[in-house]
Structures are given as C-alpha cells and as structure tokens.
Design a binder for these strands. Sequence first.
DNA 1: CATGAATGAGCCTTCATTCAT
DNA 2: GATGAATGAAGGCTCATTCAT
Lengths: 194, 194, 194, 194
Amino acid sequence: MTKKRSEPVQRKPRIDAQRNRERILEVAKAEFTRLGAEASLDEIAKRAGVGAGTLYRHFPARDDLIEAVYRSEVEKLAAAERRFAETMSPMEALRAWMLLFVDHIAAKQIIAPALNSVVGGASKLFEGSRGLVLGAIDGLVKRAIKSGEMRNDLEPFDLLRALIGVSHVASGPDWQRSARRLVDILIAGSRTNK
Amino acid sequence: MTKKRSEPVQRKPRIDAQRNRERILEVAKAEFTRLGAEASLDEIAKRAGVGAGTLYRHFPARDDLIEAVYRSEVEKLAAAERRFAETMSPMEALRAWMLLFVDHIAAKQIIAPALNSVVGGASKLFEGSRGLVLGAIDGLVKRAIKSGEMRNDLEPFDLLRALIGVSHVASGPDWQRSARRLVDILIAGSRTNK
Amino acid sequence: MTKKRSEPVQRKPRIDAQRNRERILEVAKAEFTRLGAEASLDEIAKRAGVGAGTLYRHFPARDDLIEAVYRSEVEKLAAAERRFAETMSPMEALRAWMLLFVDHIAAKQIIAPALNSVVGGASKLFEGSRGLVLGAIDGLVKRAIKSGEMRNDLEPFDLLRALIGVSHVASGPDWQRSARRLVDILIAGSRTNK
Amino acid sequence: MTKKRSEPVQRKPRIDAQRNRERILEVAKAEFTRLGAEASLDEIAKRAGVGAGTLYRHFPARDDLIEAVYRSEVEKLAAAERRFAETMSPMEALRAWMLLFVDHIAAKQIIAPALNSVVGGASKLFEGSRGLVLGAIDGLVKRAIKSGEMRNDLEPFDLLRALIGVSHVASGPDWQRSARRLVDILIAGSRTNK
DNA sequence: CATGAATGAGCCTTCATTCAT
DNA sequence: GATGAATGAAGGCTCATTCAT
C-alpha cells in the first residue's frame, strides 16, 4: 500500500504468503514437539522469520495453529491406512498402523492432547479432522473383525484411546521398544480366543 | 486483612500451620487436576485462603508442591497393592489394582506426567517415591507370572506405561467404561495362551 | 488503555520507539539518581508512560538500562576532556574536568558504583565504556605531569577513585562547595613541591 | 505470660536478651558488609539463630539496627582519636586516624552511606552518634592547624567527606594501597605552603 | 521474652494480542 | 500483506512486618 499507487505491480503475491504459512507450520510443529502446546507464539514467529503480526494473520488464534499442525499429521495417518488396507492382511494392517501411529504421533506433545479431545468429543476445534482418524481406525478394526481374527466386542474408540495413551509415554531411552511391546499386547488382547 | 469471608474468627495457632499445609495440598490437587502442572500457584494460595508467602513457606518450589500431592496419591496405591495381594487371586489383584490406578490417578494431570518421568527415570524429583509404584506393579506381575496365568515375557514397566497412557485419556463422558475395557484388553493380552 | 492523561492523542509511529527509548532513559536517570540502582523498573516504566513490556523490549535486563544511562553520561565527560585539553592549561583543564566530573556525575547514584567497578575492573558490563573515562583522566594527568606542574608519581587511577569518592558524598545543602574545596585539596596535593 | 502465672521464676533473664542482641549485631555487621544496607533482616535473624520477632523486639526498625551497628564502629574511631592525639604529632595523628578510618570503615557498605547522611546532616537517625566522628576529626584538624603544619582554611568536614568518598571505593585488588596514596595526597594538599 | 507462621504488597518478567506504519 | 513496537494482564517470588502462642 505504501507503493506508488498507480502501477498494478503485484510483485510479491500469494507465493510469499504461502511460503510464510508453511514455514510457520514447520516451526510450530517443532516447537510444539519441544515444548508442548504452550510454546511461545512469539518464539515461533521469530524462528519462522516472520513478524508476530504475520503469524496472527495466518492463524488468528493459537488453536488455529495447533489445529493446522495437527491436521497435517492426521492426514498422513489417514493416507497410511488406505495404503496398509490394500497391501496387508487385516491384523497386519492394524498392527502396522498402530505402530505407525505411535511412532509418528508420539513425542509430539500437542498431538496426543489434541487427539484426546477428538476422542472425548469435547472440543470444538479439530471437529473438522476428527473424522479422519476415527475413520482410519474404524476401517481397520471392522475389517479385522470381519475376517474373524478379532473379537467383535471391540470398540475402535478404545483402541484409539489406548494408542493415544501409549503415545503419551513417549520418553525415556527405551520407549520405542516398549511401545512396540504394548501394541503387541493390545493386539493379543484383541484377538478372538480361537 | 481481607479475610476469607466465611469463617467466624478462628484462632491462629500453631496447628494452623498443619491445617494450612493440608488445605494447600487439597486445593493444589484440585487445581493440578483442573489445569495441569502449570496451575497458578498464586491462585492455589488464594483458593486455600492463605497468602502467597505461606504457600512458599510450605513448598518453596513448585516441584515441592507437586511432589507432595503426587506422593500422597502414590502412597494410597501402594497400600492398595498390599491389600489386594492378600485378599485376591493374582490376576484378580492385578486387574483390581490396574482399575484403581486408572480410576484414582486418572484425571489428575500432574500424576500422569509425574509417573511418566518415574518410568522414564529422567527426573530428579519423585526419586523418593518412584519405588512405591514400581514395587507395587512389580509385585503384582511377578505373582501373576508365578501362578502360571500370565505370560512370563511381560515387563512390569510396560504395563505401567500402558496404564499411565490410559490414565492420560481420562476425559469425555464415557472414559471410565472405556478405561475398564482397555484394562481388560491389556489383561487379556497378558494371559498365557493356555 | 488508560493513557497518560496530558497529551492530546499522539500517533504511535515507529518514531515512537525512539521517543520511548529516550523517555525511558530520561526517567531511568532520574530514578536511579533518586533511589540508586535498585530503583523499581516497573516504576520507571510507569513514569515513562510505557508498559512494562516496552521497557523490557528496549532493555532486556536491568544492567542494559543501567549501562545505557551510564554510557550517555560518560560520553559527555569524554567530550569535555577533549574540549578542555584544547582550550586550557594542563592544570586548569584537569581541575575543570574534575569539577565537571563531580558536578555532573555526583548525585547520580548508579554512576559512582558503576565507575567503581570500572576502576576495580571487576564488572563485565561497562567494559565497553570504561576506556572513555580512563582515557580522559589519563590524558589530563599525563599532560599535567609533562608540563612539570604535577608530581610524576601520581596514578591517574587514584585521582579517579578520589573523584568517585567525592561524588558519592553528593548530598546535603553545602555539598557543591565542599566538593569544590576537595578538588582543590586534591589539586594542591598533586602539585610538584616547587 | 503463658507460664503458670504464680511462680516468679525468672529462669532466662537479661543474659539471654543481651546475648541475642550481641549476636544480632555481629551478624548484622557481617551481612551489611556483604550486601549493603538492603540485606535481608530475615536472613540476619536466621543467621543469628533467633526468630524474626526477636530481632524486631531489639530493633523495631531497620534503621535502628543500622544505627546500632554504625555506632559501635564509630565508637572505636572516637577511641582511636584520643589514643593517637596523646601519642603522636598532630599531622601524624591525623594521618594515622585517616588511614584507620579508611581501613576500618571501608568495605562496610552501610557505614559510608550512614556517615554520608551524618555529614549531610539530613537524616534523623544517627543524630546521636554524629558528634563522635565529627568531634574526632575536628579535634585532629584543629590541633594540626594550631601546630602550624596545616592550612587554616581547611574545613574538617571536607576532610571527612573525602575520607568517606575514599572508603566508598573499597574494592578491587589494589584498593588498600590506592587508599593510602589518596590519604597522602589529601595530607599533602592540606599542608601549609611552607 | 522468644518464636516462627502468616500476611500481602511489590517487584520482576513473560507473552498473547493489537495496531500504526 | 508484513512488520515489529506497544500494551497490560498474569504469574512467580521475596521480604518486611505483625501477631498468636
């Protein structure tokens, strides 16, 4: 606006905005991972190399930023579900997805709380993307039940809760292997008693 | 000078110190439950009806307060373990304790993180009481393995991690029943494949 | 929102940053003078008509503010030394500068302690500007010695120390004249015994 | 008062009170020396092994404590003056006393400010003991003037101010020798121009 | 007389959010 | 659209002083 107001120049168009948005998201993910959902927005803006105002233009409220970070992760999970369902046996696919979930989501301190409220159904935010995760686990579980390998009294939700719980524990030197063992216990506990 | 507006007059004897300490602990537990470990200490003091300085006299650092709250909970769990082990069958005792754990510890947002670091072994605080929880779960699991009902490849730690995870999820209208189902899945997954 | 109640409206341009900075410095100098280096930063901010945060943006640590105040004073002294050296005889210049030092620096309670640590060489802050004062007194003394009017066993440092001491005493109804007499004693004590 | 109110027991009489008072004074001097006049009274009480209330009983206000510390020092100086005056020549006595002053008073951060206000005549406290120092320096200077060795236009006050100033500078590795040189300059500047 | 618990004002500091440029 | 300065509300913590026992 401070430009000579006659030329319709348009030098720095959307590209810049888009680039900023992405940089912010990237940094935000890292910061939320490091410090949890309370990470300083000022710090995020600074690390992303933008002014505080710019961050606020893109994400008017803290939750908007959290959700954006969260959604990008969730989309990866949903995609994986489709991939696994096509290429693996039902129980294998379930197990693989559960492991991916833990691996991927764990240590990302916002994600677990965010998912938490998804499961709880409490929060307004995340409304949009909750379907993605729920759909994924639901599909996997239903397929496994249909195949007869899994108890039919199992609530997909419960499994999701358990996974979220396990993800919370992501810390300590050995947590990766521990998580793996836990997934296996969950799987074992979910099988039909042949 | 602006006193808590409900009590008549109240002396201020030495017993008050103890009473204050307890009131602070009580309020702190509630606040930590509501808001997590970041709850405002000033607010806690206010709700407990004491000056900020009084809180600091009793608990010079935030961690001291957290630990005190945490320890009082943990002691209840350890006591329960002894009770259960005496009066129930191994698997029953384990299940009962797990349920108690979830019921009791859940929704208390400091506890889970605190236990987390116990499991992770990372934190200096809680050093003192970590043995209590670890001992409890360890005893229960070992007894169940010895009885032949439980897989002998099970790491007590893993179960604790799973419980902590489940506890994290404490929210939503149905979480109590969900937690119960999860515990049963964990138990089922832990049994020997007869 | 509660604005300083005297100014009409005032834009809030970028120039304001500079203006704020200066206002803060001004107030800080006055407050440090009144109360010493422990003056309340909150109070300084309030008197300068800015929010606490603004003060902290400009001077992240108390020492940054102290140093800024200190440096602006010291620069005036260094400038005066150059002026005096050009226009006066050696002993006159020295005396004039000493009087200026006392007049100028005195009653400014941060300055004296700050200079103190300059002389002591102890403090990290002020590192930058210590050269200025040291250089000034050094130049004046060396010139006076060279002229033969001053004892050649005189440590410029000592004179500086004495001046700082005298500056400390700045209070009481008669201190200005007293300081003047002291400077003269110091000068007299520094002359060669013809 | 909470004792059985019939026996006139009197087990812990003045001795204790006196001992406490002295211990407090001792500790206070050390603390004031370490931290200046802002030292924590709580800390002083603690180090003296008494309750905060006890300190307040003996010294109702901070200034009362400061003055008490101050006075005990000042009395030593006054005593020294009498001693020196009897055993030394006028100028020697003056010089010795000045050195003692610097040695003794220096590094005791309350003393200098306290004396400061004595000289300034501003403060109500210290009223009582100001005469002691003033008397000492006055006596020494007058005697030296009378002997013809000292300029008769010298204000004893001025010398005191200078000494206080020099005392302020007490820090840095070399301050003792520097202070000594300064005293000599002052003496030199005070002599009659033979 | 001594004790030490309690109080609460006051200071420092951080940070989300707004807004003029 | 971007920038970054300004704001002000919290919150943490300390400490002088009072007061019940």
